[in-house]
C-alpha cells in the first residue's frame, strides 16, 4: 500500500467523520424544524456574486482537466478533491445553522 493510498484513506476517514457529524446534526435540525410551528422565511437570500463563483468553478474544473495532460503528479488531485466534496457536504450542515 503506497503512501498516497494511505493518505487518501486517512483523508477519506476524516471527511467521513465530518460528513457523519454534519448528517446527524442536519437530521436533528430537520426533526426540530418539523416539530416547530414556525414556518421558514420565504425571502430568497441576496447573493449578487454567484455569477463570479460560477465562472470560477467552471474555469477551475477546466484547469483541473487540463492539468492532467501536463504531469502525472496532477493525477492525484481529482481523488483528493472528490474527498473534499464529501467534506464540504459535511461542513454545509454546520454552516447552515437551521438546516
Amino acid at each position: 500500500m503506497s503512501i498516497m493510498l494511505v493518505l487518501t484513506i486517512i483523508l477519506g476517514a476524516l471527511a467521513t467523520a465530518l460528513f457523519v457529524a454534519g448528517y446527524f446534526r442536519g437530521t436533528g435540525n430537520a426533526i426540530r424544524n418539523h416539530r416547530s410551528t414556525v414556518q421558514p422565511s420565504a425571502a430568497v437570500a441576496e447573493e449578487k456574486s454567484y455569477g463570479w463563483s460560477m465562472a470560477f468553478a467552471v474555469l477551475a474544473a477546466a484547469a483541473l482537466i487540463g492539468s492532467l495532460g501536463v504531469s502525472p503528479a496532477f493525477f492525484y488531485l481529482p481523488p483528493l478533491l472528490v474527498i473534499a466534496t464529501a467534506a464540504v457536504n459535511g461542513y454545509a450542515f454546520f454552516l447552515d445553522r437551521d438546516g
Binding site: 454534519g22 448528517y23 446534526r25 442536519g26 435540525n29 430537520a30 424544524n33 418539523h34 414556518q39 421558514p40 457536504n89 459535511g90 454545509a92 450542515f93 454546520f94 454552516l95 447552515d96 437551521d98 438546516g99
Partner: peptide, 9 residues
C-alpha cells in the same frame, strides 16, 4: 415543508 437546508440540499 420547504425545510431542506444547505447540507441535505
Amino acid at each position: 415543508n420547504r425545510q431542506i437546508g444547505l447540507g441535505f440540499g
